[in-house]
Computed example of a mutant assay.
Amino acid sequence: MRKTMSAAVLAMGLVGFAGAAEAKGCIKGAVVGGIAGHAVGHTFAGAAAGCALGRHQANKRQRTRDEAVQPAAR
């Protein structure tokens, strides 16, 4: 019980230091990754990996959109 409470207090303290994050792609990826991870017993690891993958895909889509717009602007 003491370890759980310590971990919760530490996590809540670290939330205060977190800066503004862009969640584009992360939330949907975290949900999908969390569900897939839960199926194999690793919910939080799946959510973290899903968030990273979702963010990567969102960045890739944004680069593609930016490249498509730039030639038209010239």
Rank of each mutant, 00 (worst) to 15 (best):
V69E: 00
I27N: 04
G29S: 02
G46F: 10
V31W: 10
G16P: 09
A68E: 06
A30Y: 08
G25I: 06
C51F: 07
D66S: 09
A39C: 09
V32S: 09
N59G: 04
T64V: 12
H56P: 00
A11Q: 13
A39P: 03
V69W: 03
G46D: 06
K60H: 08
G19D: 08
Q62G: 04
G33I: 05
A48I: 15
G29Q: 05
V15Q: 08
A18D: 05
A47S: 08
H38F: 14
A36K: 00
L14H: 11
G33A: 03
L14W: 07
L53M: 07
A73P: 05
C26L: 14
A21C: 14
G25L: 02
G13F: 11
A39F: 12
A47K: 12
L53D: 02
A36T: 09
Q62W: 04
T64S: 03
V40K: 05
P71I: 04
G25K: 01
A68L: 10
V9I: 04
M12L: 15
G46T: 03
K24T: 09
G46R: 10
G37F: 12
A45V: 15
H56R: 10
C51Y: 01
F17G: 14
G13S: 10
G34L: 11
M12C: 14
L10P: 13
G34V: 09
A20D: 01
A45M: 04
R55Y: 13
A36N: 02
Q57C: 07
T64Y: 11
D66R: 11
T43N: 07
A20S: 10
R63G: 01
A18W: 00
A47Y: 11
H38S: 15
A11V: 14
G16Y: 13
H42R: 10
T64W: 07
M12Q: 03
A47Q: 00
A23I: 13
I27D: 03
A39V: 04
V15K: 03
R61V: 13
T43W: 04
L14A: 11
R55A: 04
V40F: 15
E67M: 05
G54N: 01
H38E: 12
V40D: 03
H56D: 03
A11L: 12
F17H: 09
T64P: 00
G16E: 11
R65P: 05
L10S: 05
H56G: 08
C51I: 01
I27L: 14
V40W: 11
Q70M: 13
